[in-house]
Design a protein around this nucleic acid. Structure first.
Ligand code: NAD
Ligand code: NAD
Lengths: 219, 219
DNA sequence: TATCAATTGTGAACTATATAACAGTGTGAT
DNA sequence: ATCACACTGTTATATAGTTCACAATTGATA
């Protein structure tokens, strides 16, 4: 088993980094686990454990050195070389995503978009060249894409995923409200907004305590 | 503790219902736990447990009656009265969401949108009236909104959330890449796309086994 | 009517994840 | 220099979530 670090921890590391970056920009040099815990809605113990997982240590008196920590998370999370992403489906959501991710992470970029609509193919949308979906494998082979985003209608999602797998893509972020069936050497993460909204609606009705709690923080 | 049913189960129930509805539309009358498990990327035991949680029983020989089950999930998940949703932030993502959710669930509708951009306020976008953010409480009081969607820039998200809470909203779906600090009588679900994409990118690089596995299915 | 095969419902076992507890550590105050 | 303090790193414990495994059930078959 190559990754001894849990999926949840990976997710939180990504979040910590973002929060730490914001702090660094404000000139913060050191931070304690309980401080970041408040910001990240976690507990101090959780934070320390997560950072232990990537082998980063702080000082009992100063806390953690923000810039170093950001770096350590980067070393752990990011690919050494640039990692390239393909977006499939340039509809309403696809376009929003394209704009949003443009230039956001230096090591992780949407380098090509794919659709089957002839009005979209061969145009450049927000700085990203749009190809026909059938060119996915060709473009991918040329540029070395290994992450894909599925933003096509649910009925097309499985097909799109299969084309991605055929093109050698190893990780898929799926927005279509349909579970994708792919070999288990491909990692799939679903963002199912309908499900999330129904969940929120449900818990909005319950009195709802626990979860996400503001944390008494004793340690 | 009012909800003895876990958050994870609530999420899966929403998914099952959607999948079951698709089956029902194709004329399927009965289904076994292991069949839906394959479709939902779960295990048969998981499915049975989830349905046990809402008190729905199947027959050992016929399986579960699809239409009845859909109904049972609806009784459990949905509000008896219509539940109203406010969308705050009508940017690229907000508009996509507005179009997407329009008329999707009969009992759960985005009834009003809010922004602070004068070019958007007082227009009707995709059938949804757009108000100024300062009218949130007024409109909410009039129409009885209890769910909110945050789709404003990260820097504005906390403010928007506080206005929602002040307006009596009890559940928030947050797209801004920032944890929201609200009282713990308000349920918050975050959809953090940056985090999700970084997670996918990370696991795309690992050999990645386990999770989401196609399941030998013995039982 | 008795047998059979497949599936359900569910306690028990297991796995994953989070929290608590505390010994060890570096710094500032005395 | 020694102490007290507020923290870290980490082990131990608790909780949450999943899967296993099997008795109970039911309809179909002979
Ligand atoms: N818009 C949202 O806010 C939202 C919310 C939740 C889920 N989703 C899901 O995200 C997906 C995209 O949503 P959207 O609103 O952007 O839809 P959309 O209809 O606006 O866009 C879909 C795009 O996919 C393209 N497409 C269709 N079939 C294709 C194929 N076989 N190969 C390549 N491209 C193809 C279409 O040409 C179109 O450009 C859908 O599955 C939807 O359910 C969207
Ligand atoms: N677009 C995406 O695909 C995407 C992906 C991930 C996360 N997000 C997040 O979702 C949010 C919205 O993204 P977007 O791309 O739609 O941004 P956007 O800039 O296109 O839209 C933001 C909207 O919010 C409005 N707004 C700003 N301040 C406001 C305030 N105080 N009150 C009310 N309205 C206000 C703006 O007028 C604008 O209409 C952001 O937090 C972004 O980080 C977006």
């Amino acid at each position: 088993m190559p990754n001894t670090v849990s999926q949840k921890t990976i997710g939180r590391l990504s979040l910590y980094r973002r929060l730490l970056q914001a702090l660094a920009n404000k000139g913060v040099k050191y931070i304690y686990s309980h401080q970041i815990a408040v910001i990240a809605s976690a507990t101090a113990a959780q934070v320390r454990r997560d950072w232990m997982a990537i082998g980063y240590s702080g000082s009992p008196t100063k806390g953690y050195e923000v810039a170093e920590l950001i770096d350590a998370i980067g070393k752990f999370l990011d690919s050494p070389k640039e990692q390239k992403v393909a977006l499939v489906g340039i509809g309403n959501l696809g376009r929003a995503i394209l704009i949003f991710f443009a230039g956001r992470r230096p090591k992780l970029n949407i380098v090509a978009a794919f659709d089957n609509d002839p009005y979209k193919v061969n145009r450049v949308i927000h700085g990203c060249k749009c190809y026909h979906i059938d060119q996915l494998k060709t473009v991918s082979d040329e540029t070395g894409i290994d992450v894909g985003i599925v933003a096509v209608p649910a009925s097309e999602a499985q097909k799109a995923a299969e084309k991605m797998v055929a093109a050698g893509i190893k990780g898929i972020l799926n927005f279509a409200p349909t579970p994708l069936r792919v070999g288990n050497n491909v990692y799939v993460e679903d963002i199912d907004m309908t499900m999330s909204l129904e969940k929120v609606a449900f818990f909005a009705r319950q009195g709802n305590f626990e979860r996400n709690f503001t944390s008494g923080e004793y340690e």
